[in-house]
Nucleic acid binder design. Structure first.
Lengths: 158, 158
DNA sequence: CCATTTCATGCACGGATCGTGCGCACTTCT
DNA sequence: AGAAGTGCGCACGATCCGTGCATGAAATGG
């Protein structure tokens, strides 16, 4: 169980906003020296509180204009079937996120694609024919109101 | 319309994996000098192909053990109502992602929370009482099979 | 066909940044 | 009170950063 104090939270919040902050900039923001920020950052990385750093790319600029959620119901709930479905999910790069859910469907997938034809390809040629899949229903994203993976750390800083 | 060549794609793919790569490391990976990588990276940032860099934090380690999707149906589809709902979404930090959808529901929200009580709070005390909202249905995430925001750039590198 | 322009590249260099060793202040425990 | 431990800033050598500049290849034009 990693210990995270108020300085750590500030550092995490800052790096969540800008993952390429210099230790000096970080120090100015949180009120520590650069060396100390370097040490804390290394510790947080070591403890896997910071899982990694990633560039956030503009999907539209690169031709990925379509986001969709695909709800999946499995044919049976046998372990074998679930395993096969997991392998499928990991194999397909277009699937960005995949969750097992309570409620109507068994799984929901988030995909980012070039166009509707690509979605049709995925659904009809990859998912539907797979032996583990019984039912597929997709919802197309019309508008992105908000999209970030930032945790609300402010709530912890009281 | 930004131009992106094969070197740029390699750079983007590498920075998508590790956003703190040194220009030297980047150069070794893609087969360019560090200075050239620096210049290309600056251009891609300038053109907003790279939208930013973010630390990816381990939600569980920080006490965010619960992910849920909340499907929302609006009371009416008037522009006023939609606007009020957008303001609500932007105001609540626990809502990480929000999309307008085709299909059954009008919107889907992705939230990351501490526990079921927090989910109940959000649903019953924030969303349900809001005048723009007519119907709320939430699905809790039982398991995360895959979670990344990486674009499948490989498909573009043919 | 050749002269000229344009452009991407690698190298060099001064300044910034990095991780680490060290000494100091403060807390904790006996 | 004394010892051990902890977190801090400073200092320092190594690395990394952005930029100016020369080179060479491709495009342009007469």
């Amino acid at each position: 169980m990693p210990e995270v104090d108020a300085f750590d939270l500030k550092i995490l919040a800052a790096l969540q906003d800008d993952g390429r902050l210099t230790n000096q900039q970080l120090g100015d923001l949180v009120g520590l020296s650069a060396s100390q920020c370097s040490r804390r950052r290394m510790r947080l990385e070591e403890e896997k509180v910071i899982a990694g750093y990633h560039a956030d790319l503009a999907g539209e600029a690169l031709g990925f204009g379509l986001i969709a959620f695909i709800h999946i119901t499995l044919a049976t709930h046998s372990p074998d079937n679930a395993k096969r479905f997991r392998e499928l999910v990991n194999r397909v790069d277009d699937i960005q996120e995949a969750y097992a859910l309570t409620g109507d469907a068994d799984y929901v997938l988030k995909v980012m694609l070039r166009d509707l034809k690509s979605l049709s390809d995925i659904v009809n040629n990859v998912l539907m024919p797979h032996q583990s899949v019984a039912h597929v229903r997709s919802s197309i994203v019309l508008d992105r109101l908000k999209e970030s993976t930032k945790l609300p750390l402010k709530a912890l800083q009281e």
